[in-house]
Computed example of a mutant assay.
Amino acid sequence: MYFLTKDLYFPPVEEASFEGVLAVGGDLSVERLLLAYRNGIFPWFNEDEPILWWAPPERMVVVPALYKVPKSIRNLINRNLFQVTFNQNFKEVITNCREIERPGQEGTWISDDIIASYTQLHELGFARSVEVWQNGELVGGLYGVDLGHVFCGESMFSKVSNASKIAFVALIKELKERNYKLLDCQLHNDYLEQLGAFEISRDTFMKVLKYVD
């Protein structure tokens, strides 16, 4: 494992541990975060831990051009139960992602420092949000880092049933229209798999990440 100094540097992703941990330490400056994401690396750690930087051997992704919306979600969309916006309330979305209770998960990795850093990324145009509304209330959403051809999803939340699914599908539709190559969902979980995400190797992910039209 590589221990970061103040220098803006990350080792090659191939040096990550079997679990995917590449480096520890450093900071959450905009410059370091952008360097990380542009090189297939992301931070993930608990509030009481040092910053851990990950480059897992398998990457959970969606290919927008190939994505088929599940029938159950198409039916939800057709019922017009929700309204979707983009980049209208980033701070509230990331705050809800921190505060929402998740089964089997104690605490959150979305600290005050994370919120401050990603909000700054948003203000500079590198982080974006999707908001899902119902009767004028924010009931779901997601946020992530936008690299221009790959969108790196960070977290989502849902206060009512299916709201995060609506945000997820709305994002993919937007990415498809803008010819994005991948939606990066980072690590495998069953919920993402149910929504249609799948794993690819780190090598394949890096080839797509580094390729720009």
Rank of each mutant, 00 (worst) to 15 (best):
Q105R: 11
P50L: 08
L124Q: 14
S29H: 07
N89S: 13
Q134S: 12
K173A: 14
A116R: 15
L52E: 07
V130E: 09
A127K: 02
L76K: 07
L124S: 13
A127E: 08
E92C: 04
G40A: 08
K165A: 12
I41V: 14
F82C: 07
N87P: 08
G104S: 00
A163H: 02
D146E: 04
W44N: 00
S129Y: 06
L76E: 13
L81T: 04
D113E: 13
F90L: 07
L138D: 04
R102K: 15
N75I: 14
V63S: 07
E92S: 14
E123Q: 11
F45L: 08
P50I: 10
E99H: 10
V132M: 04
L52T: 08
G40I: 01
I73F: 10
W109A: 01
A163M: 07
I73C: 04
L175S: 08
Y67A: 12
E123W: 07
A55E: 07
D48W: 14
S158T: 07
P103R: 11
V84F: 03
I114V: 12
F151K: 01
G141R: 02
Y118Q: 06
K159W: 05
E174C: 10
T108I: 00
E49W: 11
R32P: 02
D146H: 04
P50H: 11
M60G: 01
N39C: 08
E137F: 04
I166R: 02
S117A: 15
L147E: 12
I115H: 04
S111V: 10
L35Q: 10
A116C: 04
N46F: 03
Y37C: 01
V63R: 13
S158G: 11
G148H: 05
V69T: 15
E154C: 01
S155R: 12
E174R: 15
Y67G: 02
F82N: 07
N135Y: 05
S158W: 05
E174F: 15
P103M: 01
S117T: 04
Y37L: 05
D112F: 05
T108K: 03
V84S: 02
R74V: 11
A163Q: 09
V63E: 10
R59N: 05
R98H: 00
L35W: 06
G125S: 07
T95S: 11
T85M: 09
V139N: 03
F126I: 00
G153S: 12
L28P: 03
A163G: 03
S117E: 07
E174Y: 15
E58Y: 11
H122A: 13
K173E: 15
T85S: 14
V61R: 01
S158M: 04
